[in-house]
Design a binder for these strands. Structure first.
Lengths: 224, 224
DNA sequence: AGGCTTGTGCCACTCAGTGGCACAACAGAG
DNA sequence: CTCTGTTGTGCCACTGAGTGGCACAAGCCT
């Protein structure tokens, strides 16, 4: 993973000029990309155009992001990086792994600090819904993230051996629920709020056990 | 989805010459691609080389497949297309949706008819594990497939409204389990068998509820 | 201030992917 | 069997994401 997520805002002032400039460039690329991709379309916006708007070379773009999709996904990736960070430091308790993961997710959302993060996250998630290449890239990133989460958990918990599918299944449930929540939240008109996202996440997490037991009768003959 | 999966083998002889030639070309591209990608690497094999080996133009390649990844994924996609076909015709019963989906999956595996399908499926799944671009593409395809499955189910069952996350969660569980099973099966040395795949699928399906409840104590201080 | 390290832009290039078009091959009717 | 219409193929030129090399600029540290 080439993208580097920004460190917490308060520590930024202590970084050398070089680092600060890099972060500024990164942020300018993300903000401009989200704006241009949203206004004119992902495929219709070339990297040449994006780099000209930000006044950096394409070479610099690729030093900052691994791909065109990566810049579109940066806000989502930043969120998941923060989740993994939290998971790395969080004390495990005796509850089911899935519940611990859910709490980590909610705690991270409660702690996101970057100015405007919710608007950027929403724009990013909307691109996922609208652009096949971005969606594919996002799914791949989430898959890698779930593997990283399992690796972190493996250091802290006595997880079953790597051939056992249960940790993967637990992470899969979490990811599907988070995706449903993000989709619902990002689709909603009005301001993108932290509390709205947390509510959507809680609702999706609560629905997970029902995925196991959902039954449905035959479709009725009535109008649909 | 540009790729067209081959019809059941016995009906092939009734097709016009044009159709038969197209299927032959498609199969030659799949077989040669799997071989070349496996021997020398996906990224190290260019489409020019593949098309020269099969003696078709690149233009024809792109009339047959939507992308380079698609040809690598063809066997996996063929399997899922068959699953969706089965789902379209299967009579719904009153059991949980997830169980019905599992049975559909197993029935389809029991019914796959193309010569050598297991070896091709295994080669394809191995490329998914080894090549990031193929894995991303596969995840995206499976995501689209789960949406298609929900659409099919929606016509036959009184599923909850589209905003309800439970059908997505059920499909997510199925897909994660199938992926675990395919991964385990494809990683195994020796012949790729139908019964081996069915066994792996059954084991993964049985593990799904445990994903909900999995608990793990703190990692021990022992050597790891 | 000077020397070293790191970052940037420029350039040439590759390769997946696209669209247009002339010609070839097939299908079906008479 | 012939003829005509339909469909498929290959060729060609091109685009844009992505890559690697290298000279020079900018920052850092003594």
């Amino acid at each position: 993973m080439t993208s580097t997520s920004p460190p917490p805002a308060p520590a930024t002032e202590r970084l050398p000029l070089r680092e600060r400039k890099k972060l500024r460039t990164r942020q300018a690329l993300v903000d401009t990309a989200l704006r241009m991709f949203t206004e004119r379309g992902f495929d219709a916006t070339t990297l040449d155009e994006l780099c000209e708007a930000v006044e950096v070379s394409k070479r610099t773009f690729f030093r900052t992001f691994a791909s065109k999709e990566d810049v579109a996904l940066a806000p989502v990736q930043d969120l998941w990086h923060a989740v993994l960070d939290d998971l790395s430091t969080r004390l495990p308790d005796g509850r089911p792994v899935l519940h611990q993961l859910q709490d980590t997710m909610l705690a991270t959302v409660g702690r996101m600090a970057a100015d405007g993060w919710t608007e950027r996250l929403r724009a990013s998630r909307r691109l996922i819904s609208q652009v096949p290449a971005v969606e594919a890239h996002s799914l791949h990133f989430c898959n890698r993230t779930s593997r990283a989460a399992i690796a972190i958990l493996r250091q802290r918990l006595a997880l079953p051996d790597p051939g056992d599918p249960r940790p993967r299944l637990a992470l899969g449930m979490l990811l599907t629920a988070v995706d449903c929540a993000l989709d619902a939240w990002a689709s909603r008109p009005g301001p993108a709020t932290r509390t709205g996202l947390a509510a959507d996440l809680r609702a999706a997490f609560a629905a997970i056990p029902d995925g196991l037991t959902l039954t449905a009768g035959p479709a009725g003959p009535g109008p649909r």
